[in-house]
């Protein structure tokens, strides 16, 4: 088998503040092949965004500390690169779409200038007209008339702003696109437009995508593989067919599905997961999900479960060992 485009091995990240140590990512391993879509699913505080920021080396410098692990991307180990080497990758080979299009654009620059910035930094195009031509091209790709490049972000609606953010992200034909909740701030009909566009772009550009979301519906629609995160760990990982339809699933995954009100069935009562998300500063011993798990056994409280691999469908739970 060929080397995957991105491979994260046993990544541990903590946020160290004066008051407490928050263990945000605890031994995450995952891989992503060329042209593949991986969905990273979990609730607030599960460590999804921290994984994304670690890949781009954008963790807060003083407080965000990578304890262990390695991130291999296209044959390079990202964590050991120098800042200047990293800058050549960021925005060029790996780019990121942030959650909130309202705050991730610069309000005092026109949309065209913001797209041109990336192109001038990373591509060989230095002539002004070349850059402008590329800006027009990209804007059309995301469905914005090129004439609107003279406008400022506040003149765009939420959906249009997110298109601009995507335009910036794909300006250099990246190999990997990290999308952190790209449509959470948008309305459903606009979300459908943006998702369709991202899907089409991915096909034409052959980009791999790491899609961070809490919406299992989006995962079902967009992704090939999915990783379910809880308390900084990947508790279940596999192809979408495995995670959505297999009989053996992690109790947390089952809980997530039980929490979503159905659009077709007739369920009068939801089956949510009891309790609250664990505190990352004070993680429980054993399995991190055990205080909320309906199938908790004695050994779950003390022993950390091993990962069970069923031909690519990996579950971290004592139930299946």
């Amino acid at each position: 088998m060929s080397e995957p485009l991105l491979r994260i091995e046993d990544l541990w990240v903590r946020y160290q503040t004066e008051r407490a140590t928050n263990y945000a990512v605890n031994g995450v391993s995952l891989s992503l092949d060329k042209g593949e879509n991986l969905g990273l699913v979990g609730e607030t505080g599960a460590g999804k965004t921290t994984v994304a920021l670690s890949i781009l080396r954008l963790l807060p410098q003083k407080t965000g500390i990578v304890d262990r692990g390695s991130i291999w991307f296209d044959g390079q180990e990202l964590l050991s690169l120098s800042q200047s080497d990293m800058r050549a990758i960021r925005g060029n080979k790996i780019s990121m779409i942030f959650q909130d299009p309202m705050t991730s654009l610069n309000p005092v620059l026109t949309v065209g200038e913001q797209i041109a910035e990336v192109i001038m930094l990373h591509s060989s195009k230095t002539q002004k007209h070349e850059v402008q031509q590329r800006v027009d091209e990209i804007l059309q790709m995301v469905g914005i008339p090129a004439a609107r490049k003279q406008e400022y972000p506040h003149q765009f609606s939420g959906g249009m702003k997110q298109r601009v953010v995507i335009a910036i992200a794909i300006a250099c034909n990246p190999m990997l696109l990290i999308a952190d909740e790209p449509t959470t701030a948008l309305d459903v009909t606009i979300q459908a437009q943006v998702l369709e566009m991202m899907d089409a772009l991915k096909r034409t550009l052959q980009t791999s995508m790491l899609l961070i979301t809490h919406d299992l519906g989006i995962v079902a629609q967009m992704c090939d593989k999915v990783a379910i995160m809880y308390s900084g760990e990947i508790v279940e990982y596999g192809r979408v067919e495995d995670v959505f339809e297999a009989t053996e699933r992690h109790p947390y995954t089952q809980g997530l599905f039980g929490s979503i009100p159905s659009l077709t069935g007739n369920v009068r009562r939801l089956n949510p997961i009891g309790g609250q998300m664990t505190d990352p500063a004070n993680l429980p011993a054993g399995c991190k999900f055990h205080p909320r798990c309906p199938k908790c056994m004695e050994r779950c409280k003390t022993e950390e479960p091993a990962v069970v691999d069923r031909t690519g469908h990996r579950i971290k739970c004592h139930l299946y060992t």
Binding site: Q191, A192, D215, G217, V219, A220, F244
Partner: peptide, 25 residues
């Protein structure tokens, strides 16, 4: 109709269905 069509449902049956997507804003 368009609103119902636009919701991503968490099952795989509608995965490769071509969806009608509302144009404009």
């Amino acid at each position: 109709e368009a609103l119902l069509e636009a919701i991503p449902t968490p099952d795989l049956s509608s995965r490769n269905k071509k969806r009608k997507i509302l144009k404009g804003e």
